[in-house]
């Protein structure tokens, strides 16, 4: 049964294709009793920056139809405290740990990656490119193929860990950004990040988040993620893609893999039901059995054409 769920991300072995997405599993002690983390395919940490980030005031979360809008200002303890206070307990779970790396300048990404270089037990780095590039006008790295590639290239060259580039879908051509990152040395891609958005309270005539805008996540962005995964995987079938964005049940996980994802990340849904990744894992297995497949990887590329052939139609 276990063997059936094994996934190989081109050299990274996972026991399950379902992992916890960045920012939605950050405190093991506080989730005790709600989730057996050892059954996760992998854990992606919150994005860690060089210095601690405190984030802005609340409200930091609001709901939007079938989704949520959040803006935590990338609050995180900074790499130094993370290494001492948070990473060891994650590594002790023996679940593959993917550390999400953040930064507002090239140098910051590199220094965080350097501090991680000697740690044993890290499976990969995920470079979160949704940070603003403060060295070059403040546009988000993910919005500029060249800025994204610069970071991914530099981090890939200096680290021994495989590097996943986490991309945003609100770009003119995500395949173009993906190509730049792959050419620069990315091992794989995480598709997609939260999508910038806004929720306005009409009675109050104010935005519902103190920050004004935030990131939309949850089922609301699922179609955006599926399209991004599909387009990029069609262009780069040999590059591991971690599907992320609105995956909240077995069906949406299978859909992401049919679209081309090698594994999936569950985020917002974990904030509602902490053990939902394990439920999704079971549902994926059930789907594989039902369809007579031997491994999640066989789902990949299994997407049929939108138009059934005459023969299929008759069945």
């Amino acid at each position: 049964m276990k063997a059936m769920l094994d996934v190989d991300l081109d050299g990274i072995a996972l026991r399950s294709p379902v992992m916890a997405a960045s920012g939605c599993l950050r405190s093991l002690k506080d989730i005790h009793g709600l989730l057996d983390v050892r059954k996760l395919g992998a854990i992606v940490t919150p994005s860690i920056t060089l210095e601690p980030l405190h984030g802005g005031p609340g409200p930091r979360v609001a709901e939007s139809p079938s989704g949520i809008l959040t803006a935590t200002g990338f609050q995180n303890p900074g790499i130094e405290a993370f290494l001492v206070e948070e990473l060891p307990s994650l590594i002790r779970t023996r679940v593959p740990v993917i550390v999400s790396v953040g930064g507002t300048r090239l140098d910051e990404y590199l220094r965080v990656a350097t501090d991680l270089a000697l740690i044993d037990g890290i499976a990969a780095l995920e470079v979160n490119l949704a940070f603003p590039n403060l060295e070059r006008g403040g546009a988000r790295f993910a919005h500029r193929a060249d800025h994204a590639a610069e970071v991914i290239g530099a981090v890939s060259r200096m680290t021994r860990f495989p590097v996943f580039a986490k991309l945003s879908a609100d770009v003119a051509d995500i395949v173009d950004v993906a190509r730049a990152c792959i050419d620069a040395g990315a091992h794989g891609l995480t598709l997609i990040n939260g999508v910038p958005g806004m929720v306005i309270d009409v009675d109050d005539e104010r935005p519902r988040l103190a920050a004004g805008t935030g990131w939309v996540s949850g089922p609301a962005i699922r179609p955006l993620a599926q399209r991004a995964i599909f387009d990029v995987s069609q262009a780069f079938p040999a590059i591991p893609i971690l599907g992320c964005g609105g995956i909240s049940d077995g069906k949406s996980a299978v859909a992401a893999m049919l679209a081309g994802a090698w594994a999936v990340q569950v985020g917002t849904a974990m904030l509602v039901q902490p053990d939902v990744p394990l439920e999704i894992t079971k549902d994926v297995l059930r789907h594989l059995r039902k369809t007579g497949l031997d491994s999640p990887s066989e789902l990949r590329g299994g997407l049929r054409s939108a138009q059934p052939t005459a023969a299929e139609d008759e069945r």
């Binding site: 920012g23 939605c24 599993l25 950050r26 405190s27 506080d30 989730i31 709600l34 919150p46 984030g55 005031p57 609340g58 409200p59 930091r60 979360v61 609001a62 949520i68 959040t70 935590t72 609050q75 974990m270 904030l271 509602v272 902490p274």
Partner: peptide
């Protein structure tokens, strides 16, 4: 009484200073 994402410490949205 702050707006909350999860309620068990994972999402860091219900913070107060």
């Amino acid at each position: 009484q702050e707006s909350m994402g999860c309620g068990w410490g994972q999402c860091f949205t219900c913070v107060i200073p």
